[in-house]
């Protein structure tokens, strides 16, 4: 079952069309990476799912229920962590979580239990300061706790690691990974190593539409066009190879050939026959980064 389904989503801000018929489906219990460069429409998509932005066209359903702009019924299924979560900074973290529990209609005993449980999970259980004095990382961790508080079916995180140091990033990713059995996670990012680390599914958004979408493993397997790097000793030999076999010159003495388009053995024969001095020949697997670069430079 799909926890989230988006069909034909359009959104325009003035003359700029941000979303141009976006289709997306997020399977239940997946950790879904929503990847795109800055300004590609990730945040607009997420805010439309949350009913905070009105779509010009298209339909969104969360757990089978239709999202209506301005009304927040479907948000009962969602936990949301914005890129920069803002809290009532006159409150203490526990007080804020209790407030979250109360406005979502949870029972008092459950609120107390859940607050203890989540503060422990995010490492804020011994924190007695008001939120005003919190660092960015601490706010992000509290953000995850508040998003998970009402046991949402769908957790939406908008670039949760983008502004954090490596330690903070690791903490947030570990937490997101640890909750994958409880909920479906949709998180946007442009940090591809984060996606490779915790995601089961991925979608690339570019120019207002989804260009690649599917299970991360399948995508990696289907993108079977691995690449070869050939580095020659002399720049003149690089030109000879370039003229003979094509490829992409990425440095004065380095050429990249796509597997399938050019047979590496032909290149190796040519090198042997012409006695071209070579520094190295390397085969490297298609990475998420190269997939992403391919998508955005199409």
């Amino acid at each position: 079952m799909d926890m989230l389904r988006i069909t034909g989503l359009h959104k325009r801000f003035g003359n700029h069309e941000v979303l141009k018929g976006l289709d997306l489906s997020v399977p239940e219990h997946s950790v879904f990476g929503f990847v795109g460069k800055n300004g590609s429409g990730k945040t607009t998509t997420m805010k439309t799912i949350l009913g905070l932005i009105k779509a010009d066209d298209g339909e969104i359903t969360v757990a089978g229920e239709k999202v209506v702009y301005g009304q927040t019924a479907t948000n009962h299924h969602i936990g949301y962590l914005p890129d920069v979560p803002e809290f009532y900074d006159f409150m203490k973290p526990r007080e804020y979580l209790v407030f979250c529990g109360e406005i979502t209609g949870m029972e008092k005993e459950d609120i107390e239990k859940r607050a203890d449980e989540l503060l422990r999970l995010v490492g804020l259980d011994k924190e007695e300061r008001r939120i005003k004095g919190f660092s960015r990382g601490m706010k992000q961790r509290l953000g995850i706790a508040q998003a998970l508080f009402a046991r949402p079916k769908l957790l939406i995180c908008d670039e949760p690691t983008s502004a954090l140091d490596p330690m903070g990033r690791k903490e947030i990713l570990d937490i997101l990974y640890s909750v994958r059995n409880e909920t479906t996670v949709l998180f946007s990012t442009h940090v591809l190593s984060d996606v490779e680390r915790i995601c089961t599914d991925v979608a690339f958004i570019d120019n207002g539409v989804i260009s690649i979408h599917g299970k991360l493993e399948d995508l990696k397997a289907n993108f079977n066009s691995n690449e070869y790097l050939v580095e020659t000793l002399n720049e003149s030999d690089t030109f000879v190879l370039l003229e003979q076999f094509g490829g992409v010159q990425i440095a004065p003495t380095r050429l990249v050939f796509k597997e399938g388009k050019t047979e590496i053995f032909d290149i190796m024969n040519f090198i042997a026959e012409n006695k071209i001095p070579v520094v190295k020949i390397e085969r490297f697997e298609k990475t998420l980064e190269s997939m992403f670069m391919e998508v955005i430079t199409k």
Binding site: L50, G51, T72, I78, T104
Partner: peptide
């Protein structure tokens, strides 16, 4: 200005 309503409304609290 502070965006503090975002978290509250995205929890399903009626406007």
């Amino acid at each position: 200005g502070n965006n503090t309503l975002v978290l509250v409304l995205t929890k399903g609290l009626d406007r």
